[in-house]
Structure formats: structure tokens, C-alpha cells
Write a protein that binds this DNA or RNA. Structure first.
Length: 475
RNA sequence: GCCGGCAUAGCCAAGUGGUAAGGCAACGGAUUGCAAAUCCGUCACCCCCAGUUCGAGUCUGGGUGCCGGCUCCA
């Protein structure tokens, strides 16, 4: 399975080739744990999860790292900055460390509900102060950075390809009216590697002084290096990370390490709400709890994200979520019906199918779409085409086991199927109840008939009264 | 002011030169004691204008709208 992935750096899809054969190392910019992440944040993390699963589908061994930013960065680049973690702490009357613990726990709970496979490590910035300081010292030594008092800045002119990722030019940045002027810096576009402020609560005593804290971007450079090495395969984040965050990471890392940093940069577009932007101040930055209040599960949301392409902004509406929830249910029922008709998942054996088999076609389409820059929309459509073939009676019963195997493979990538619960009733018991219901219906005792149907529903058994008689399935 | 992206049916969305995937909703019908269950069927010429081409949703130019970056932010 050859993957073609879009690289922000080159602005085109590229054939993906890992640096080490059969092995992928990737880093994801994770949450700043000062407030519970909203569904927009989770779009990026769901993408990271999807990418990992597709890489594994392609038989690659993946090492996946996601950082937790537990030190608040400055709200702006002015000399006197505020720290959003500390600001939140003041608001909640907690100390910053308590906020970090509380929000991190919430984050992992949400990720679990979303069916995200845990990364191999979630390093925290505050656990890696030493590594950051070391890198900053190295940059000073190599004349890529300069110290002004207890502050340290990166000299963007020392890195010729600064701006390559984002398409910005240093001259344009300079002309940008919104750039804060800071007299300390040699150049307005230079960025902070280390800052000092005695009023900060989260601060460290280092060679740069007693009241220091890391700059905006150094944590990712330091932690990525520690966990993945100097040169690794993939780095992802939201589109807002392209500049300045990732641009600065590249500058720092490639300068300090004197070599290539990351081969492939991938970014997810923002989620929009009702056609416009999402924002806390707009009151539409929903959390998973807001979704649950309206009766939607985290997996419904996951499904909604899989219906669109990560490289296009996706418009979140309640109607769209409703549609996703329904569609997910239909796919779930498809699998349940196959199981109900005696199918057991089988090892995929394409050769025995014949190219004309609906299952074989679906699998080819499913994988081909994913391999083309994670086209989940098209990939998902292949599953619905297969479902339609089944519903229209075009699927031979002998193909049910392979169809189920394909759905299992699909689940390994999409991860939105519900687990099948038997509800504690045996087939015999269920048949017995259905027979009783039939008798009750014949005797026009509909109260009794509906009671049985409700009982089965409660046990996760779905009944379908068809012209051919009653059909049932679990799930 | 400077960069970049997007614009497809009521809603979500795929499609990168060859005549519009898929899902949801809606509507008509079947079935049913009823059904929110199930099944059958119907449902778009792709923001506007001008070009290129035998042929454009797909390429080029202009316009309009929305989104992102230039400021912590997925």
C-alpha cells in the first residue's frame, strides 16, 4: 500500500517514504492544558489518530508522540506579557499546576471517548526544561541566538530558509503592522527562546537567570528530538500552527542540529460552525458535553469528522451531526445484520473473491481512497456502496464473512463502530421471545407484543418485521 | 497592508479535462396492529463574469463571499 500525503512544505502530495524502512516516527502538537479542549481542537487530534491508523494499515510500525503544553505562553510578544495558564488559574482561584492536572485528566477522558488510540508518549513541557535550556545554549553558541539581559531571542536572519513553510518573507513580516515592536530584539521578526519575568508563577532558575520560562516554540523542538531523534518523519498540527509555531520550530531545530528536522508537515483545516468561525466568545466552541446534551456520542462526532477531508474546512452544524449519527447507525446495522445472518469475520482473501466481487471492489476502493492523502470521504462511500449491494440482494451469502472482515478492517481505521453487546440473551431465548410476540400479535394483544419488543430493544436486539417474516440482529 | 485556502442539491461532502460518489433530510410508494424499524423509487448542470479547449465543477484572468496566518489558539 503506497501512501501519497500532502506536504505543507512542498505544497503537493508526495509518495510517503519513511526514513527508516518500515518504521514511522511522528509528532503531534497537542493541547495547551489550561481549558478543556473543544470539538475544534479534537478535529486535529482525530486527524492524528486517523493518520496513525492508516500508517499501520500500510504495515508500518508507528511511534507517535503528542506533547502537552503545560506552561502557558505569553499572550503577546510585548515585554510585559500575560500567561494564559496563569490567567486561567487566577480566574479559577487555583494554582497553575492544579489547572494542568484537572484539564489533562479531562483531555484524556475525551480522547478515550472519541476512540483515539493512545500515543506512545505524552511528554509535558515542564518535564523538559533541561532539554530546552540545552538547546537554547547551543543556539547561542552557534550564533543563531542572542541574549539580552535574561531573555534570549532567535535571530531569524541567521536561518536563510526562514519562511519556507508558511510562505512568509521576513521583509513582509517586518512591514506587518500587527507585529509588536520590541526594542530588545535586533529584528522585529526575531522570536523568543527564553524569557524572564520575576512575577511569573511558573518559572525556573537556569543559566539565563532565576525567573525564566521557555519561549513559545522551543518545547516542541526539544521534546521531539528527545523522543524521536534529530530527524524524523511526520509532524502535524492545526493550520494555525504553520506560522509562527512550526516555522520557528524548523528554524530552531535545523539550526541547532545542523541538519534536516522533519520530512513531512501536515496540517488540518479549522472546523467552522454554521459557516463562520468558532470561538469561545461566540459561544459556539462546543465540548463533548454539549454534544452529549443533545444526544450525540463522541463517536458520532468522530464519524462526522471522517466524512470530510482534513485539508478542507468542515462546517459543523447540528443538522450535519444528526446526519452523521444516522449514517453511522446504518453502517453499524449493516455489520450487525451480516453477523445476524450467520457471518463470522474471515481472514481477508482477495484472491478467492474474484475482481468482480462487490466486496473485493469495495476493499480496493476503500484502500485506494485512504492511500490518496487520507480521502476518508471516498473511502467511507465505498462501504456504503457495499451496504447497498447487500441491501439490494447482490451479495452472496458466502461473501458475508469477507464483507465482515472488510468492515473490521474499516473499523481499524475509522474506529466508529459500536461494540456488539449480546445483552445476555441466547439465540434460543430471543427466538422464543419473538415467537411469543408473534402469538401476542396474532391474538391482537399488542400491549404484550410491544412489551416484548421493548424488552428486546433494551437487550440491544433490533427487530425488523419484513414481508418475509421477522428478522433480528444484535447491536 | 502582506501571505495562503475554500465556494458542489435543504444539510454534510467526494470528485483536479470527458459529461456530477456517498450519507442525512424531504417527498411518493410497499409492508405493518402501530412503528421513530425495514424495503422500493424520486431528488444538482457545480457562487458570478470573461477566457483557454473538440470538451471545464475540474485550467486561466477578474469579481463577490467565507476561512486561516501575519498575535496565545487545533
Amino acid at each position: 500500500m503506497e501512501l501519497h500525503l500532502y506536504n505543507t512544505l512542498t505544497r503537493q502530495k508526495e509518495l510517503f517514504r519513511p526514513i527508516r524502512d518500515g518504521e514511522v516516527r511522528m509528532y503531534h502538537c497537542g493541547p495547551t492544558v489550561y481549558q478543556r479542549p473543544h470539538i475544534g481542537n479534537y478535529r486535529a487530534f482525530l486527524f492524528a489518530d486517523l493518520l496513525r491508523r492508516v500508517l499501520e494499515l500500510a504495515d508500518l510500525k508507528v511511534t507517535q508522540i503528542m506533547n502537552l503544553t503545560d506552561v502557558g505562553h505569553l499572550v503577546d510578544d510585548a515585554e510585559e506579557g500575560d500567561d494564559k495558564l496563569e490567567a486561567q488559574a487566577r480566574k479559577d482561584k487555583l494554582d497553575p499546576w492544579q489547572i494542568v492536572e484537572k484539564v489533562s485528566a479531562q483531555f484524556f477522558e475525551d480522547m478515550n471517548a472519541l476512540g483515539v488510540q493512545p500515543a506512545h508518549a505524552y511528554p509535558r513541557a515542564t518535564d523538559h526544561i533541561e532539554e530546552m535550556v540545552e538547546m537554547v545554549e547551543k543556539l547561542i553558541e552557534m550564533k543563531h541566538a542572542y541574549r539580552v539581559g535574561d531573555n534570549v531571542y532567535f535571530d531569524v536572519h541567521s536561518f536563510p530558509s526562514y519562511g519556507r513553510l508558511s510562505g512568509n518573507r521576513i521583509e513582509d513580516l517586518e512591514a506587518g503592522a500587527r507585529l509588536e515592536v520590541n526594542d530588545e530584539k535586533k529584528h522585529p521578526a526575531d522570536f523568543a527562546l527564553w524569557k524572564s519575568d520575576e512575577h511569573h508563577l511558573m518559572k525556573w532558575d537556569t543559566v539565563f537567570g532565576p525567573h525564566g520560562f521557555p519561549g513559545w516554540h522551543i518545547e516542541c523542538s526539544a521534546m521531539a528530538r528527545k523522543f524521536l531523534g534529530d530527524h524524523f518523519d511526520i509532524h502535524t498540527g492545526g493550520e494555525d500552527n504553520v506560522f509562527p509555531h512550526h516555522e520557528c520550530e524548523i528554524a530552531q531545530s535545523e539550526s541547532a542540529l545542523n541538519g534536516p528536522f522533519v520530512n513531512l508537515w501536515m496540517h488540518t483545516k479549522f472546523l467552522q460552525v454554521d459557516g463562520g468561525k468558532m470561538g469561545k466568545s461566540l459561544g459556539n466552541a462546543y465540548t463533548l458535553d454539549d454534544l452529549a446534551e443533545r444526544g450525540f456520542s463522541a463517536l458520532d462526532y468522530r464519524f462526522l469528522m471522517m466524512r470530510g477531508s482534513y485539508r478542507n474546512s468542515l462546517n459543523f452544524t447540528w443538522e450535519a451531526l444528526k446526519g452523521a449519527a444516522e449514517a453511522r447507525r446504518n453502517l453499524n446495522d449493516f455489520r450487525s445484520r451480516l453477523l445476524g445472518e450467520g457471518g463470522e469475520p474471515e481472514e481477508m482473501n482477495l484472491e478467492s473473491l474474484g475482481a468482480e466481487s462487490a466486496v473485493a471492489k469495495a476493499r480496493v476502493a476503500f484502500r485506494k481512497a485512504l492511500a490518496d492523502d487520507l480521502n476518508t470521504s471516498e473511502s467511507l462511500a465505498a462501504l456504503f456502496v457495499l451496504r447497498n449491494a447487500y441491501v439490494h440482494g447482490e451479495l452472496d451469502a458466502a461473501e458475508y464473512p469477507v464483507a465482515l472482515a472488510l468492515l473490521a478492517e474499516a473499523d481499524s481505521v475509522f474506529g466508529f463502530f459500536d461494540s456488539i453487546e449480546s445483552g445476555g440473551l441466547s439465540d434460543q431465548e430471543i427466538d422464543q421471545l419473538i415467537q411469543e410476540r408473534g402469538e401476542a400479535r396474532a391474538a391482537k394483544d399488542f400491549a404484550r407484543a410491544d412489551a416484548i419488543r421493548d424488552e428486546l430493544t433494551a437487550a440491544k436486539i433490533t427487530l425488523e418485521d419484513t414481508p418475509d417474516g421477522v428478522k433480528w440482529f444484535r447491536g
